[in-house]
Structures are given as C-alpha cells and as structure tokens.
Design a protein around this nucleic acid. Structure first.
Length: 579
RNA sequence: GGUCCCAUCGUCUAGUGGCCUAGGACACCACCCUCUCAAGGUGGAGACACGGGUUCGAAUCCCGUUGGGACUACCA
C-alpha cells in the first residue's frame, strides 16, 4: 500500500507527463509499464478510512509516504467493537500534520444555487458536510451561489435556510449570521472575483476569448459530427496583438478564459481514490462571462480558497470539474488544497438521478407531507452511508459516528417506503403532547378545525396508525367536523345493517354510564349479540354511521372522545338519512 | 464520440482473501393476534452482472465484456 499513501493529498502536483499523453485507452493505467513505483489505482478500504482532519497538504511536495502505524489501531473491526467512542476510525489522537504545520480545524460548506426549494439530494450533501464538520468539531458554512442572477430568487434563499433549519442543520457562518469571510452571498462578492480574474489575466494564466457563444456552439456541433472531441480548442489563447486589436476594434465582447496547464491532474478523492485526468482532456474554461460576471468555476474556486475550506463534499457530477478548480487555485497561489469527497447522486425509481421529474422531491414537500425531520435526517444519512447493521440514528449519534469516507460509491435509489417506515418509527418515539403539536398543522391543512386538547387525547388512538403526520387527518376527521356523510363502503355497511339496528344502538349508547370506552364496548357487544351478530359485523354499522367510514381508530375509544351527545346524534342522523 | 465514475436480494446495505451454507433493514408472502385499519409476533421467499486470470482458497485482488451514470456550457 506504499504508493497509495498519497490518496488524501489533493495536489494536482504530480504531472502525468508523457505517460498521460499516450494515445491508448488507458493512459497511465498500468504502473508496471513505467519506471514509477506501483500506483494504487483503486483505493483500498483503508485508504478510504483516513482521518479527514489531516488536510491541507502542500502542492508540489513529493510527500513523505511513510506509514502511519498509529492511524488505525486494530482496524475497523476493533474500532467498532469498541462501541460508539471507538467508532471514529481510529485516528483520534488529534489532528496531525505531516510536517508539523499548524493544526487545521475542519471547515466544510454547503453551497447551493438557490434556484428553488432544496431537494433531498442537496439536503443529503448538506447533511454529509454538516456531519463532517460537527464530527470533527469544525465549522460549517453556508454560502449562496447566486452568480447567475437569472436563476435565483430571494425567496429561494429563505426556503433553503428554512429547510436546513428544519432538518436541524445549523451553520456557523452564512449570509444571515455573517462570519470572518463575509459576505457569504456570491452576488455580493463580485469585486473579489473580478480582482482575482484580472490578476490571472495579468499574470498570463487567463486570456481574453472573443469567440461568441454562437461560434462556440457551431464548432462544437462540427466537432461532434466529425467525431472529434468537442472541447474548446484554445484558439484565442494564441491570438497575435494584431488579431486581438482587430477583435477589439470590432467591438466584440470578450469572456475571460483560464489557460489550463498542459499537464495531467490527479484528484485525490476520499471516496473515489486517485482520479486521474490526462493532459488534453481539460480544455480552457471561461471564468468571467463577457458581461463581467464570474462563472461557478471561478467563484467557487476563489471562495473555497479564501474561506479556508478543508473538505469539499459534493455530488459526483462535480468530479470532472475538480481538476479545473485545482488548477485555478494553484494559479491563484494556493499552496494547500481542500480534500474532496464526491458522493454518488440519489436516483429515482427509474434509476435516473433524482429530479423534479420524480415529483415532489423537495425537503419542503416532504415536510408538508408529514415527515419528521428526525426521520428525514436519519434516512438521508443511511441512504449511502452505513454503520454495521444499524439503521436508526439520532442526529447526535450521527455526529458521533459519521465518517464521510464510509459513504457508498453506488448511486442510491430513493425508497419512500423505507422513509415511511422510519418516519413511523420516530412518530412512536414522540410523546402525546409533542405528537399532537406536530399533527396540528396537518389537521388544519386538511381543512379541519382541530381542538388542541382533543387532538392530544386522540394521539394514543392514531400514533401507530400513522406513517406520516398527514395520516392523522382522515383518521381523526370525525372528531373535528360533523359532516360525516358516509363514503361508498360505509353506505354499503349501513344498508346491510338489520332493520332498526341503528336506533337500537342509539338507545343503548344513550344509557351508557359513565361514558367510558369499556362501558361503550360492553354496550356495543350486548347490542350485537341481541341482533345475533359478531363483533365485526355488529360494530361496523356504528362505525360507519358515526365516522362515515369503514376505517377508524378503535371504536369504543373513538366514541368516548366524540362524546355521547355527538355519537347518538350521528346514529339518529344516519337513521334519518336512511328513510 | 471523448474523459471519468459505478456494479451483492425488488430497494438500501454488511462484507476489506478462509469467519459466507453471503448477514441486516425496508418492501413482499404466509400464519398468529384482532371491532375496521394499523401496530405487534412467528415463519418464508429473495443477491455476489458475465468471462478470464492470480491464489491452496475470490463476493473480496487483476484484466476484459456487458450494463448503468456523470461530465463534455459565457448552468451550478
């Protein structure tokens, strides 16, 4: 495993040189063909279990690849056997810097582009970042990536913050709370990006590109049609003074393009291991649009650097852009780089990455459907991360146990059924007061006028019948409205009841004293027996008449809550309706 | 097309060369319990994509095939 020791180092340092330029399909793939020491191509399990606190490696340092015998005392089995405290993967003897550098506290960020409500995939990314920060006692920052003004809205920013807060993910620095690197909204940092961009320009690390989007698109299509690689060909990189002057005279708007170094890059990813990018596979990219606004690549790169992020946890759709950011940071003078972890995306039932097409996938939508934040967080954590055979974790347990390097490398399918099961589990954990409080909104949203004390008393009847909070509404509807017109099934039950049965029921219940579930049950039994009916057959007509449904919480308890008067009234109303 | 990532029950996963006759959870099926619906209990069915190699031994390491996915924007 010697050569693999460098996996956590994020340096784009190691040039792939001529090897990487080989035209064959797997440049640089077979270490045996080269003079180099063998390179671990697939991260061994141990490699993925590093203590993420050891960050910020220097760029071109050959790196001491020595072993760290103390890193994983006993390996994971031993760590696990040690219980919660021992589950941290071993490296708990404090942050260590390879060369005695300053101790770096972990800093992670969540950087959404607020183009709408945050969806569960992003929420999971936020959770992983947050957990990584909290696990290591570091800082979590919220940064708003709104450099594309056309796509963001103020409302969306608040929606994002609301969802995060609801999930219980707080941030130490952000647009609302400020912090040492404020502002945290990229639209308010435009000067910073401009400044860095012009520095890159003056240092020759970036150049003006006069190609118009139309021309670019045209060439792209041609390249594709001809079977060539469609990336930018770098033509404006080598413009002569005369050509440049001509374009300027023409009044062509110029974008700023970053000049990628002519070499390969290797991204050391906590989940993927060493990911190599050969020279030539990384075209020059735009960092400033012709309108003077920064692109994501510039803004994110500059901010991650300036804000001192140590760990960048994000979806693997961004993996391919990482070498660009590394190159950019390097050009900006960075000597230390963040550690990256690119996790797989969440997919929908069709195996396609989860998106709006899959219906309501926003955190807000799940909240509205009556999911508990406890369940949401637990499920999201489990979706792609595991800790032995356990799958129930509270947020604080997650903080204790979470390890980003143990996140799965497979895309996970979002399984609402499991989420529902988990939600039901957390509903069971709540006491009646708490459950009632949380149900109120769902009841109101269903058009009912819930009376809080009655809701509270009804909780024991419905809690184990609910998967989501909104399940309470149909179950408890009969308590909060007198409009209990029987549905189709209930109507069938009512017409099937013996002649005079409901009148008898009304009369019998009227005499129950005191009005308790036990007494009600006894009366109902007498009633059914008198008519020669089983409990099942005998109670259903009463249920249908009183609740308007064939499904309800336990009948006697339901009637107790409803009260004698309303119960009897509904039975008589049903009789009247039948005539 | 090019670059990159990925591959264990239907789903999420455990697995780190012998503890594997592959474990758990959700879902599913059957039975029990039962006033409806649930919940609960008991039991059951269900997977290492394929082909080579390395090894005494492979789910595990290597190569390939196949199949998914990402990126390839003056979007993030």
């Amino acid at each position: 495993m010697g050569a693999g020791e460098g996996v956590r180092r994020v340096l784009p340092a190691r040039p792939l040189d001529r090897d990487g330029a080989r035209p064959d399909r797997r440049p640089d793939r077979d270490p045996r063909e080269r003079g180099d020491p063998p390179v671990r191509l697939h991260p061994g399990p141990r490699l993925r279990r590093r203590d993420p606190r050891r960050v910020h490696q220097r760029l071109h340092d050959p790196a001491p690849r020595g072993r760290d015998p103390d890193r994983y005392p006993g390996g994971r089995r031993a760590a696990r056997a040690g219980g919660p405290g021992g589950g941290r993967g071993g490296g708990d003897r404090g942050p260590r810097q390879p060369r005695g550098g300053p101790v770096t506290t972990v800093r992670t960020r969540f950087a959404p582009a607020p183009s709408g409500a945050i969806h569960v995939g992003n929420a999971r990314t936020a959770l992983y970042s947050w957990l990584t920060a909290r696990h290591h006692g570091g800082a979590f920052v919220l940064r708003i990536e709104d450099t594309d003004a056309s796509r963001v809205s103020e409302e969306a920013v608040h929606l994002v913050m609301d969802s995060l807060r609801w999930l219980g993910l707080d941030w130490d620095e952000g647009p609302d709370v400020g912090g040492p690197h404020a502002p945290y909204r990229q639209s308010e940092r435009l000067d910073i990006y401009r400044e860095h961009a012009s520095r890159l320009l003056s240092e020759g690390r970036a150049y003006r590109c006069y190609c118009t989007p139309e021309e670019l698109e045209q060439r792209r299509r041609e390249a594709l049609a001809a079977g060539r690689t469609p990336g930018y060909d770098g033509r404006c990189r080598t413009l002569t003074e005369a050509e440049r002057a001509a374009f300027e005279a023409e009044g062509r708007p110029a974008a700023l393009r970053f000049a990628m170094p002519e070499r390969g890059f290797v991204v050391h990813d906590l989940l993927k291991g060493e990911v190599r990018f050969a020279p030539g596979s990384l075209p020059d990219f735009v960092i400033m649009r012709s309108d003077g606004s920064p692109t994501y690549l510039l803004a994110a790169g500059v901010d991650d650097l300036l804000m001192g992020m140590t760990h960048i946890i994000r979806g693997e759709d961004l993996l391919a852009s990482t070498p660009r950011q590394l190159a950019l940071m390097e050009a900006l003078g960075a000597t230390t780089f963040p550690t990256y972890a690119h996790h797989p995306l969440i997919v929908g039932p069709d195996r396609q990455p989860l998106s709006k097409r899959h219906g309501a996938t926003s955190v807000e939508a799940f909240r509205e459907r009556g999911f508990l934040p406890e369940a949401m967080v637990n499920y999201l954590a489990i979706l792609g991360w595991s800790y032995g055979d356990r799958d129930l974790f509270t947020l604080s347990e997650l903080v204790e146990l979470f390890d980003i390097s143990r996140v799965s490398r497979n895309p996970a399918m979002f399984d609402v059924q499991k989420l529902e099961w988990m939600n039901a589990h957390y509903i069971q954990q709540l006491d009646d007061d708490e459950l009632a409080a949380r149900c109120l909104h769902a009841l109101t949203a269903a058009g009912l006028l819930p009376e809080p004390s009655l809701v509270r008393r009804a909780m024991p009847l419905v809690r184990e019948r609910m998967k989501v909070l909104t399940d309470a509404a149909p179950l408890l509807r009969f308590l909060f409205t007198d409009d209990v017109e029987p549905d189709e099934r209930a109507a069938t039950v009512l017409t099937g009841a013996p002649e005079g049965y409901l009148e008898a029921a009304a009369a019998a219940l009227e005499r129950v004293e005191p009005w308790t579930a036990a007494n009600i049950a006894a009366a109902l039994d007498v009633l059914a027996q008198g008519a020669g009916l089983s409990r099942t057959k005998g109670w259903q007509p009463v249920r249908a008449a009183v609740t308007g449904s064939t499904v309800s919480p336990p009948l006697p308890e339901s009637l107790e809550l409803l009260g004698r008067e309303r119960t009897v009234a509904r039975l008589r109303a049903a009789v009247a309706r039948a005539r």
